[in-house]
Design a protein around this nucleic acid. Structure first.
Lengths: 318, 318
DNA sequence: GACACCGCTACAACCGATTGCACTAGAGTG
DNA sequence: CACTCTAGTGCAATCGGTTGTAGCGGTGTC
């Protein structure tokens, strides 16, 4: 039914190998023959079967990208940048969503393995050892996670967290709560490490799902903790937290200051506008694609984050 | 480097066809042989190459899903539902983002064509004729667009728009603005048709990009139009609009009532909470996958929408 | 005892492409 | 004129699987 290379060969009176070369190595075929073959191919509506090509060449010209939650704007920004970058190199990106389930994550990597030339793992929830094992089946680049012997792109959230806490301390907050993320998250661990390293009195509340619901469910603990400043795992959690606080008649930033991570709603309304740690997601997406396509020695690239002060933080009340 | 079916055959002392059947038709091979082969396969870490398998069977067990903007929560909800449904049927979904570019959209369908068993087109921006042509290369299911001879899932946004306008009229609004979407959008046309059909005095403002920025840029026209009630192409546009209005000291809903479409921020904060037309995105995603996997006669399935009244609409001031 | 039948396995062709190699004819060289 | 060279093309093996068919030994039937 579909038109194959043989149909084109027959219709243009040449051997299949000549047709093949017309597409993959044009300089090897006579100009006249080439134009004829191209005309026939166009006429028949022929398109090389990429899967079949991949079988012999070993290259699919596809990339896989796996994220925990496609609905999180943090990821969608990264995805868009990665797709754009891949397009420049004539690659296509297939995205898949694990729904925060490590089991699904592993399955997806396996499924991708032979159909793509490499996989971008964004904030994977799998154990390091599992990731390393999978790395032998398909080239992997990891974003926001430290995995031995794999090329890695990190966003320096530790530095951001330090800045955020210093910002709170400078505003006079004496007791600070860190609303942590999922237990498998490198970002969350990094934030905790940064918080521990500082001088401030920081209490950890978690783990929590990295969603608005996660934020809402942490409200009681936050209030009970007596903290006047809160650093949330990400903006979604921060938003859920603020909603929950509002329902308890606790005003932000008057009663409690809140800081998020990711900067997913830069221009967005909502009051108060959220103070947050901006993550270089687009740069990370581009960088990760580049590392996948120009294989380099496994190494770590760290991108800077920055604290964006808006309206959800204010001086502590005495 | 990778372990193939031949390695397994050699190591377990049987022919490759037996190994093949062990995986694809287990009942045809002796129980004893089967367990031995499986043991060896497991030992060697063998996984069938899905691309190679697809070459003979013609089935890849993959689905493609193409959206205009992966960052739009409207789509991400649909994507998640589709992925979940596909997983139940042992299928994987590859997602791609066209960035609202019809050219890219066509390219992606071509790229998917031989690597998936079918493609879900969500709110495509391509011309109908182009879509029909592509439909001959790969099974297609279209969401939120009428295309001849293709299975289709529609969300009845026309009915929703009528309800929205009736709601505004009932609140005493005499002049209503419809902030339209991209010119290629079926949804936008449907809304315009619904608005025209009613009795109300509706002015069309557009086309606009289906984003917050699109909403912001429509603010001047909305104010100039003298409308006191606005129906926006989607929630993002509505949000942009409300931000822009706030900056012009126009209060919602006191001065102007605003209604969005999609219900992308059901639990979200932001004041006032947005009145909107809820779209059954998850149901649409599941339905579309089912139609792709159990090929049916091309037909149209229409899902109901519903108006969710919140705080962004109020009685018109006299 | 010839035959059909059974469960199981091996053989080989095939899916749609790529690619190293051999071959051809014509041009260039001495 | 015999030679090497080269550009262009065909041949056939190959990638990693699937699948129709044939062959195997053994049992049951008439």
């Amino acid at each position: 039914m579909a038109v194959t290379i043989r149909d084109v060969a027959r219709a243009s009176g040449v051997h299949v190998s000549t047709v093949s070369r017309t597409f993959s190595a044009p300089h090897l075929v006579n100009a006249e023959t080439r134009t004829r073959v191209l005309a026939v191919a166009d006429d028949l509506g022929y398109r090389p079967n990429r899967a079949a090509r991949a079988l012999t060449t070993g290259r699919t010209h596809n990339l896989g990208l796996i994220v925990a939650d496609i609905a999180n704007p943090f990821f969608s920004s990264l995805i868009k940048a990665a797709q754009a970058q891949a397009r420049l190199r004539d690659y296509h990106v297939f995205v898949a969503d694990t729904d925060e389930d490590p089991q699904v994550e592993e399955e997806l990597i396996q499924a991708f393995a032979k159909q793509v030339d490499g996989v971008l793992l964004c904030g994977p929830r799998l154990a390091n050892s599992t990731i390393e094992r999978l790395g032998e089946q398909v080239p992997l680049v990891v974003v926001n996670r430290r995995v031995n012997d794999l090329p890695t792109v990190l966003m320096d959230v530790g530095r951001g967290a330090r800045q955020a806490i210093e910002h709170l301390v400078a505003l006079g907050h004496r007791r600070i709560a860190l609303v942590t993320g999922p237990s498998g998250s490198w970002t969350s661990k990094e934030m905790q490490a940064a918080a521990t390293a500082g001088e401030a009195d920081v209490v950890f509340l978690g783990p929590n799902p990295p969603t608005e619901l996660g934020g809402r469910s942490a409200v009681t603990d936050v209030i009970a903790s007596g903290a006047t400043g809160v650093l949330a795992y990400n903006d979604l959690v921060a938003i859920g937290l603020m909603e929950g606080l509002a329902e308890r008649d606790t005003q932000v930033p008057r009663d409690i200051s809140v800081i998020g991570v990711d900067d997913i709603l830069p221009g967005r309304f909502g009051s108060p506008r959220l103070t947050t740690i901006a993550m270089p997601t687009a740069a990370a997406g581009r960088m990760a694609v580049d590392m996948l396509l120009n294989p380099v020695a496994p190494g770590v690239t760290t991108l800077e984050t920055s604290l964006v002060v808006r309206e959800s933080t204010a001086e502590a009340r005495r």
